[in-house]
Design a protein around this nucleic acid. Structure first.
Lengths: 356, 356
DNA sequence: CTGTTAGCGCCTTCAC
DNA sequence: GTGAAGGCGCTAACAG
């Protein structure tokens, strides 16, 4: 059906070995021959079949990028999941472009044994795996890693069978909390955590608790277990309505913060006047909301790029020592924490509330 | 290196054919044998190599999803490109999940001859190609389609060598313009078009012009050639500042509308009080902006799903007649056109302007 | 029921 | 310089 090496060879009157040589730019071919072969290739529109190449040279030139979406039964209609992956993908593509490799993308539904099966299937199609928000248990991970190199993005730094690239969740969170305390005099904190299985969610939560504990007078008034989705933010707010408002609701990621803000506004509570809200990640949306979101920027593009570079290194040398890198985060101060509000805002807020 | 069929066969004391049979769930194997083989597979952690399978059964079970980003030299720092693809990807995954196929994703930088080379390389790794915002000329497309089935998403409906799935750009635009005219009494229109090479951009533009022409008294005061990116919206607004404002700025997509709104707000012009702005696509962001964006919803998820289904059909039967489907669009009325504004808004707007 | 065997398309020594 | 031949891991007849 498709044009093969043999077709080209026949058309050019040479052997397949010769065609292969010119395809790969080897110089051990007489100029005239090479020319003839090139013409045949052009005329027939020959493109070497990737599967056959993979087979022969034991390399697919494809890396797998997979995100494990953690959902509970109620949130499976959720639409806003990929925002994280998107930036990571750009970083990965950037790292792959120079060498011409491709990326196989796939978002897994759950984190169960089924997820492992799917990962296994994917592993058969790629030279290496980049797993985001690594909600895969160590045991299964080890099994996977035995088949194919694995790099975790935003995963648990201590994973023994994979390299890991993360952001400085701890430092970012601590900086944020200190800002809230020193600049805004916040004392009463509400925390909205990400899924317990997500390592970065845990890192942030722990850092938050520690930072609050480190400040005399500051207290965690309540916390809510969310799943990194906007709906979690809405639920958390619904659950706390009626109670006394905290000074700030610190959220484990931007999506939940967005959900929280919407629900607060819907309830007629003014952000940041009545309660401040903060996020984590600095997704594209965060700068465009009303109010704009104060958050901690995680260099997602870079996470993808570094993670991919790391994976390529390991593919090239599977025996090299395990690597674990942590990229810096940055506090992004906007208005949802109460900063940057011109005085006219206070008047305007009264009128605006609940309009949009 | 990796575990192969032979390893399993040896371990289980059977032939590779038998192993292959149990792997594929054939029943013509004695229960005892099957059991033994299963154990060996489990013990060794065997997963069939995809490249070898592709080779043997002439099918890779991978489809390629590619977006061609059209950029001019000034916009290559742009960050907000993938928003379209993201939803499409979800649709594609949905269509592929039941059969276990994977998607190879890749966004091409330019639309030149270089893009064709890249597409060629990708075509060698997949069973079919899904091209979004098809900025590939017919000639190259025909060459590609000769190698591998191609489906265009949001591409030119008349492309002879590929199936096409689009949204009803014409109808959506006309409905929008009529709304602006009849509900808001708009007469002076400014148009912000997408890239001339993009078929959907053209369809929208033509529909817009026709709809305006159909209304006595309505005029297009000016138009601007953008590239579907937020920065285009900003530029367009800068270019029109100082001139008399139109009633509405109709934008070829949401991203440009967002850019336009931001620039207008920065210039102290109130949206929608001083000028209305509308978009097209209804990306996730649009409902969260201030003001929320009035736009035409394009069923992006469905475009991906239908496009993929169409591609699978063609892969199954390459000879079937060409197909071209058009999905319906829907006018989404929010506040940027001037609708849904409670009276208090007018007071509030005065104070709010330019704060965020 | 199970084993043998011939490819799938390409790369890569090894001879010539 | 160029060609012949083996093998990559698996599938799918075809024999038993």
């Amino acid at each position: 059906m498709a044009v093969t090496l043999y077709d080209v060879a026949r058309a050019a009157g040479v052997s397949i070995a010769t065609v292969s040589r010119v395809v790969h730019g080897q110089d051990r071919v007489r100029a005239a021959t090479r020319h003839r072969v090139r013409e045949a290739i052009e005329a027939l529109g020959y493109v070497p079949d990737a599967a056959a190449q993979s087979m022969a040279r034991q390399r697919k030139e494809i890396i797998g990028l997979v995100a494990v979406e953690s959902r509970d039964p109620d949130t499976d209609v959720e639409q806003d999941g990929l925002l994280f992956i998107e930036e990571v993908l750009r970083g990965v593509e950037q790292a792959l472009r120079p060498i011409g490799w491709s990326v196989l993308i796939s978002v897994l539904i759950s984190g169960g044994a089924d997820a492992y099966r799917q990962l296994q299937r994917i592993s058969a199609k790629v030279d290496g795996l980049l797993i985001c928000e690594g909600i895969v248990d160590s045991e299964h991970l080890a099994l996977l890693a035995a088949r194919v190199p694995v790099v975790l993005i935003a995963g648990p730094a201590a994973e023994p069978s994979a390299d890991v690239v993360t952001a400085d969740n701890h430092g970012g969170t601590v900086t944020l909390v200190r800002h809230l305390i020193s600049r805004h005099g916040a004392r009463r904190f509400h925390y909205l955590a990400g899924p317990a299985e997500a390592p970065d969610a845990n890192a942030r939560r722990r850092a938050f608790e520690q930072a609050v504990a480190d400040c005399p007078g500051a207290v965690v008034t309540a916390s809510f277990q969310g799943r990194f989705a906007a709906i979690s933010g809405q639920r958390a707010v619904r659950a706390m309505l009626g109670q006394e408002l905290p000074d700030v609701i610190v959220c484990g990621n931007d999506q939940m913060a967005i959900g929280a803000i919407r629900e607060l506004q819907a309830a007629g509570i003014r952000v940041p006047l009545d309660v401040a809200v903060t996020g984590f990640d600095d997704i594209h949306l965060s700068a465009l909301l009303t109010p704009t979101l104060t958050t901690v920027r995680q260099p997602m593009r870079q996470l993808g790029e570094r993670g991919c570079a790391c994976l390529l290194d390991r593919i090239a040398d599977p025996g090299r020592p395990r690597v674990s890198v942590e990229l810096p985060t940055e506090l992004i101060v906007r208005t949802s924490c109460g900063c940057l509000l011109p005085s006219c805002f206070y008047r305007a807020a009264h009128w605006c509330q609940g309009i949009w």
